[in-house]
């Protein structure tokens, strides 16, 4: 059996040359069924998933930082408890996703090394700082909101462990979004200073949140293959459009202005027209030149390197206990 060296689209004309295992894979995809860890799968499919799931896991882990920034300063005990639980949820999502990636044959240690070395990517939204409490609202409402739009379709991703992980994650994310909305609502119903804090924060997070759906469809090289494999279900632009359609009425309830002067309802399309996204900024942040890239990775590295002696101790202790158990 030879595994094709590069990802290729499943096309009927290939049918004559495929192996039985490959045919089985193609049939499962065609039937919109699930691929499981022990099933045969093309190399490209495996690599695509490892890249996507590990990036998603890294995003959860790095994403703990901008919110972790406010746990010690949360302005009420109730908010402190909710924020703590939310950040803890994100650590849980990270673990869950690392486990899903491990079923594809990559170790958690390797993924961690890639993150710390700066060779793995994570969602570039987390390279923005969170200087105000209102950012806890914006991150929940806009960032988690965008994540949900992206992730709900992933519950039906063809790879079983990923799809099932996403079911659980989406349930929690939708709560996260709601609590972000509540934080902003409370601020918008508050003092002038609180309202100003909320609007200023929404101004900063709105455009980066729209960028979370990835480049426009005509500049998204991997999308077509991911859609053919039933990993991705909707295009970047479709999801972005859906997200904006969801935000506009919520912004009205909040009383915040979305910082896009070109945002208006297009009767003909039955959708909102929006202004141009600054893709130069997106690529700059992606390339490591965002406001907090260095800080985020440094924290991760410090935690990992600083905890080395603890992990070594735990491993040494476990080894000694195993020897005792045998003796």
């Amino acid at each position: 059996m030879t595994i094709p060296p590069v990802p290729y689209a499943i096309a009927p004309e290939n049918a004559a040359t495929v192996s039985a295992e490959e045919q089985q894979f193609n049939d499962l995809i065609a039937a919109d069924s699930r691929i499981e860890p022990r099933d045969w799968m093309p190399d490209g499919y495996r690599k695509t998933l490892i890249r996507q799931i590990s990036q998603h896991a890294h995003s959860e882990i790095i994403g703990m930082q901008p919110e972790g920034n406010w746990i010690t300063r949360a302005p009420s005990l109730k908010r402190k408890a909710i924020l703590l639980a939310k950040v803890q949820d994100e650590a849980g999502h990270g673990l869950y996703l690392y486990s899903a990636a491990q079923t594809l044959g990559i170790s958690r240690d390797l993924m961690t090394d890639q993150l710390i070395a700066g060779t793995a990517r994570y969602s570039s939204i987390f390279n923005y700082p969170s200087p105000t409490w209102a950012d806890m609202g914006s991150i929940g409402w806009l960032v988690d909101g965008a994540a949900i739009c992206n992730q709900v379709p992933l519950c039906r991703a063809s790879y079983g462990p990923y799809g099932r992980a996403m079911v659980r994650i989406c349930k929690e994310e939708s709560f996260h979004q709601r609590q972000g909305f509540e934080i902003l609502l409370e601020l918008m119903n508050g003092t002038p200073a609180q309202r100003e804090m909320a609007q200023e924060s929404v101004n900063r997070w709105y455009w980066p949140a729209l960028q979370m759906f990835g480049p426009p469809d005509d500049d998204s090289p991997n999308s077509a293959q991911s859609m053919a494999w039933n990993i991705k279900r909707f295009s970047n632009d479709d999801l972005r459009q859906r997200f904006v359609g969801m935000l506009v009425p919520q912004a009205e309830v909040l009383g915040v202005t979305l910082p896009d002067p070109d945002l208006r309802w297009n009767e003909e399309r039955g959708a909102y027209d929006m202004g141009d996204i600054d893709w130069t900024e997106f690529h700059e942040v992606l390339a490591g030149r965002g406001p907090a890239n260095a800080r985020r990775l440094q924290r991760r590295r410090d935690a990992h390197n600083g905890g080395q002696w603890v992990r070594e101790a735990a491993a040494a202790y476990a080894a000694k206990q195993a020897v005792k158990a045998v003796a």
């Binding site: 882990i61 746990i71 402190k80 703590l84 990270g94 935690a303 080395q308 992990r311």
Partner: peptide, 17 residues
């Protein structure tokens, strides 16, 4: 609460949290 995102391993971020 300070330990969250700074613990020696993810399991400890969760446990201490």
């Amino acid at each position: 609460g300070w330990w969250i995102s700074r613990a020696p391993e993810l399991e400890e971020d969760i446990a201490l949290g």
